[in-house]
């Protein structure tokens, strides 16, 4: 039986690790390569690097980080942040990224998903969606809306419709990131995650809001997510990857338990 996955997200700014709280203000918390290696050895199932570097001339720093991580971390490595073209995707793939996360640029130009899927394989394209709750309307019948630019720009685009469109365009996986829950440590947005997981045939990664091990359990069972993404929970040393996996395993969630 397929295991659920524990994924850790490392936000990288100018080659250094940072953790965002509600997407505003970030602080450096160490060397991404070192952290990646630590989590890998502690049983993490998959890593995501998100490049939050503002300036485009720092892109090469990210490629160096990816390359250094790929040399010593032998689990799937996913990279996102600022990917606007097939060339961005293939550069990162060559540096050692297994999966490519597209986000804002795909909202503005959805063909980016199919172009990247064609170039590097649909199973390697992850559509990352930043989502906020809104009143149900004709424009957003699901009650959830896509936002871009780190949560600052609402797009008037229905989140559920976008998830299904992303799947149709060739995305191999979806990240459902609730910006309402992000940084709160109050738990994932279960209703949103489940709604999307039940509406697509590709895997769904739940993101935003994890603060307690119970939150992971809830989103992997009730929320129907295939993977749970964590960040601050493990970055600040409150929890370890192996500890979270052991907890989930003990609650009956199928996890990879030997590494």
């Amino acid at each position: 039986m397929l295991s659920k996955r524990l994924i850790a997200c490392l936000d990288v700014r100018d080659g250094k690790l940072a953790k965002s709280v509600k997407f505003v203000d970030t602080r450096d918390i160490g060397d991404p390569v070192e952290k990646a290696r630590e989590y890998y050895l502690d049983g993490l199932d998959e890593l995501v690097f998100y490049d939050i570097t503002a300036s485009s001339d720092a892109r090469n720093i990210m490629l160096d980080v990816v390359e250094a991580v790929a040399e010593q971390v032998f689990i799937p490595l996913s990279v996102g942040g600022g990917i606007r073209s097939v060339a961005d995707a293939t550069d990162l793939r060559l540096a050692g990224a297994e999966k490519i996360n597209v986000n804002s640029a795909a909202v503005k130009r959805p063909e980016l998903i199919s172009e990247c899927a064609e170039a590097v394989g649909a199973q390697n394209i992850v559509l990352s969606m930043d989502i906020r709750a809104v009143p149900e309307s004709a424009q957003c019948p699901s009650g959830y809306e896509i936002v871009i630019n780190g949560g600052r720009t609402p797009m008037g685009l229905d989140a559920l419709a976008w998830a299904q469109k992303g799947e149709a365009l060739g995305a191999g996986e979806l990240v459902v990131n609730s910006i309402d829950a992000d940084g709160t440590r109050a738990g994932y947005e279960l209703r949103l995650t489940r709604m999307i997981a039940e509406s697509v045939r590709i895997p769904v990664i739940a993101s935003g809001g994890a603060g307690l091990p119970e939150h992971l359990e809830a989103v992997l069972t009730e929320g129907k997510a295939d993977a749970a993404l964590v960040a601050s929970m493990v970055h600040y040393g409150d929890y370890t990857c192996s500890g979270l996996k052991t907890y989930l395993h003990e609650q009956g969630v199928k996890m990879r338990m030997s590494w």
């Binding site: 397929l2 295991s3 996955r5 199932d45 199973q123 045939r201 895997p203 990879r256």
Partner: peptide, 11 residues
């Protein structure tokens, strides 16, 4: 309907 496509992950 709950089987995701493709078979992706740890098994």
């Amino acid at each position: 309907p709950e089987l995701k496509i493709p078979h992706m992950g740890w098994n």
